[in-house]
Amino acid sequence: MAEVFLASRNTKKLGEMERILAPIVEGVRVLGLDDVVEYAEPVEDQPTFEGNALLKARAGLAATGLPTLADDSGLCVDALNGMPGVLSARWSGPPKDDARNNRLLLDQLADVPDERRTAHFACAVAFCHPDGTELVVEGRMDGRVLRELRGSGGFGYDVLFAAVEHPDLTTAELSPTDKDAISHRGRALRQIAPLVAHALR
């Protein structure tokens, strides 16, 4: 069985990636940070999603010797000039706290009319292989920021975000299958999965 390391301990993200990779990469086992010997994770200090994803994938490969996937993603709000962007997970300051981030975002958009609350989720997924191969792909999900929290699925800003494909539901109200079909991470993973499969042969 081929093993791929995903540089994350977010169980929901691991599950999402495994669901998407499983039908494409036959017999693959996805390992997370809790499945390998602990190592010093790099500080995500790059100005782009691509830069942070590569940083994490390179560090994971160096620490484990396994083919490594890493992603960086975030919410880019048009009325906030693309922020929180790469700062999405720590928008309200340390420690990371989804509830506090969502409250801050609602406060910042309180006076913004509905038609100007457009936003998109962006994701970069990097893959680094021991043979020196490095790949990065990007995915995007367009939509808008709502005025109230809704739903119990997903994580992060999902409780506030309605995608254009499902304008009456937040991505936290979608089934995992429906979310995977349109999500920024799902789109990026479906792009990179055949490349990962080829590299693992």
Rank of each mutant, 00 (worst) to 15 (best):
P42S: 01
R90Y: 13
E115N: 14
A181S: 12
T64K: 09
S88D: 08
Q191C: 02
L54F: 12
P130D: 08
G15R: 08
D107E: 15
I182C: 07
R117N: 06
N101T: 13
L14K: 14
G74Q: 05
G74F: 10
G32N: 06
G82N: 09
L104T: 07
A59N: 07
Y157N: 12
S183V: 00
A7E: 04
I192N: 02
D168C: 03
D71G: 12
L61C: 04
R58P: 11
A59S: 14
A124M: 00
H120I: 01
R117V: 07
Y157R: 10
T177P: 00
Q108F: 05
T171E: 04
V136Q: 08
V145K: 06
L200T: 08
E50S: 13
G32F: 01
A53Q: 09
P42C: 04
D114G: 08
R29C: 06
V28L: 15
E138T: 15
R116H: 05
V30E: 08
P47V: 08
V145I: 15
S175Q: 00
D78P: 01
S152F: 07
V164T: 12
N101V: 12
L31T: 06
L169D: 10
Q46F: 02
P42R: 01
G65N: 12
L104F: 02
V136D: 04
A40L: 08
E134D: 00
A119C: 11
S8K: 08
L109S: 06
R58K: 15
L80T: 02
T68C: 15
G143E: 11
R29G: 04
Q191V: 02
A57N: 00
F49I: 04
I192D: 01
V86N: 03
D142A: 14
A7V: 10
F5G: 05
V196A: 11
R58N: 02
P94M: 10
L160R: 11
L87S: 09
G139L: 10
D97K: 02
L69A: 06
S92P: 10
E134S: 00
R58E: 10
R147T: 15
P176I: 08
V43T: 06
R100I: 02
W91I: 00
A181L: 03
P23L: 07
S88N: 01
S88V: 01
M1D: 07
G60Y: 11
A172Q: 03
L55Y: 13
N101L: 00
E16V: 04
D98S: 01
A163D: 01
R140M: 12
Y39W: 14
A162L: 03
Y39N: 07
K56M: 06
P167E: 05
L195G: 01
P23D: 00
G132P: 03
P47D: 14
L189D: 09
D35G: 10
Q108L: 14
A181Q: 09
R150S: 14
E44V: 14
H120P: 03
F121Y: 15
L160E: 01
T48N: 05
A197G: 07
G51D: 05
R117P: 09
F155R: 05
P95S: 09
V36G: 03
V86E: 04
T118I: 00
L160I: 06
T171H: 02
R144K: 04
P42A: 05
T177F: 05
K13N: 03
H184Y: 11
H184A: 10
D71W: 08
E165T: 12
R19V: 05
H166E: 12
V112T: 13
H129G: 06
P84D: 03
